[in-house]
Design a protein around this nucleic acid. Structure first.
Length: 425
RNA sequence: GGAGAGGUGGCCGAGCCCGGUUUAAGGCGCACGCCUGGAACGCGUGUAAACUCGAAAGGGUUUCGGGGGUUCGAAUCCCCCCCUCUCCGCCA
């Protein structure tokens, strides 16, 4: 959420920045008008309430005659206050509801652009390998031939975009998760967390997935539960409505969780293989940091994601999102893409965002810089480290052999009970 | 799911029956000052957040789990909801 004070004091700037992310700021004038009315009403109401408190106290001490005499007058005052409170609540929720629909503003260094076509390739590490003796297969063929991915039975019991991982396939994913978490916790300084996979409306609003993305999430309509679309939601909200001691910052959190997405927006896209399912596993990183650190922390976060690609020895590249492709909550964002030779494309395995104070303001995550100082909003960052299905795709396709077997990357062998190759059972 | 007990400031805890005398007692913690060679003890002072008016100094309002109601006036009375604990039931 944007700071209403920033909009109030600098509407021109906010409009210009919103234009960069493709949002017309025309409605800003309306919210400013609402805000002005709200403040005026707030002041008037405060005066009335102050008056009532004093008078009521006097009335308590007054004689019964005086009391009866003034009662009608006070009653009218009470009615005015009640009416004013109703109006104030209405104005507040109007402003609030509007502010909740505005996206974050981009950082100044983010390249201005309209769509993903304007994104910038920051660097490419490793070159896509040449397959000279045979043509690399896509993972759906490899997986089915090896019997480690079963699409038909996934569809049978759940529907399209579901699959089974079986035997060494399931084991391989579990190995990836354990290995990634070990790197996060033992080398990169993250605290491992196993969060709830279902969260309430407040949490999903705090992370800015509501109100805008309501139709992309699964939910329980009877009980105010949303199935998390990413662990970013529970991790970012972990410290909601808290004032964190500055000495505890930065907070680095890592979690493995399944993620649930309706993928309504992408109906018909990426239907082949395991690239885009309704449910997928992911290791997620979240950082809560001092505002002055967040730009630098984002760079480190991207590196923490890239480290996984490096150790798997799979070519990857880092893409800087332009203003038009930042998404709703990010002020700055990088994607990490891994090369998948079978389907011959770069796959987004990580998306790393600096959300600035956008989520912190929604979720009221604050810290106190010094004793007695005013609480300030932290900055929140999140990034995948990494998403399983696409990492699995790259891995299977990269490490495939001519006979259809898969070589297990050396770093994962300890997590596979020493197995060095997946062959047809 | 049923029954009972609860939810009060950073923490503990009184107030609720019986509405106004509370500026939410008292304690702990924390900060500062005095005391001390230095500390402990002791003494004193202070100790939330949000909104809002104001150039500032400073002022006003709201918040006793959340919402609604009664009332001139609600932490206190009434209704609904949420959460915690104890016991019972059911269940992986």
């Amino acid at each position: 959420m944007l700071d209403i004070k920033l909009i109030r004091e600098n509407p021109g700037l906010v409009k210009a920045e919103l234009a960069k992310v493709g949002v017309e700021g025309d409605e800003l004038d309306r919210v400013l008008e609402t805000d002005a009315r709200r403040r005026k009403l707030q002041f008037e109401l405060d005066e009335l309430r102050s008056h009532r408190a004093r008078e009521s106290k006097e009335l308590g001490k007054a004689s019964p005659e005086v009391r009866d005499h003034k009662r009608a007058e006070m009653r009218a005052l009470g009615d005015r206050i009640t009416a004013g409170e109703r109006d104030l609540t209405e104005l507040e929720s109007q402003s609030e509801n509007f502010l909740l629909t505005l996206p974050n503003l981009p950082r100044p260094h983010v390249p201005v652009g309209k769509s993903d076509a304007d994104n910038k390739i920051v660097r490419t590490v490793g070159a896509p390998q040449e397959f000279t003796s045979f043509k690399p297969l896509p993972h759906w063929e490899l997986g089915e031939r090896l019997g480690i991915i079963d699409f038909d039975r996934g569809v049978k019991i759940a529907g399209t975009r579901f699959h089974f991982l079986i035997g060494a396939g399931a084991r391989l994913e579990r190995a990836l998760i354990a290995w990634m978490l070990d790197i996060k916790t033992q080398e990169q300084g993250y605290l491992e967390v196993a969060p709830p996979l279902m969260v309430n409306t407040a949490a999903v609003t705090g992370s800015a997935h509501l109100p805008k993305f309501a139709d992309t999430m699964y939910r329980d309509f009877e009980e105010d539960f949303y199935f998390i679309p990413t662990a970013e939601v529970p991790l970012t909200n972990m410290y909601a409505h808290e004032i964190i001691d500055a000495a505890r910052l930065p907070i680095y959190l890592a979690a493995y969780t399944p993620c649930f997405r309706r993928e309504k927006m992408s109906a018909g896209r990426d239907v082949r293989g395991i690239k885009r399912g309704h449910q997928f596993d992911k290791v997620e990183m979240v950082k809560l940091v001092h505002p002055e650190q967040s730009d630098e922390e984002l760079e480190n976060l991207v590196e923490d994601a890239c480290e996984i690609c490096r150790r798997l020895e799979i070519p990857y590249r880092v893409i800087q999102m332009c203003t038009g492709d930042l998404g709703f909550a990010a002020a700055s964002k990088y994607d990490v893409e891994m090369w998948a030779p079978g389907c011959a494309e770069w796959l987004e395995v990580s998306s790393c965002s600096n959300c600035w104070d956008f989520q912190a303001r929604r979720a009221q995550i604050r810290f106190r810089a010094e004793k007695g100082g005013k609480p300030e909003f932290v900055h929140t960052l999140n990034g995948s480290g990494l998403g399983m299905p696409r990492t699995l795709i790259s891995l299977l396709e990269t490490y495939q052999n001519e006979d259809g077997s898969i070589t297990i990357p050396p770093v994962l062998r300890p997590y596979m009970g020493g197995m060095d190759r997946i062959s047809k059972a």
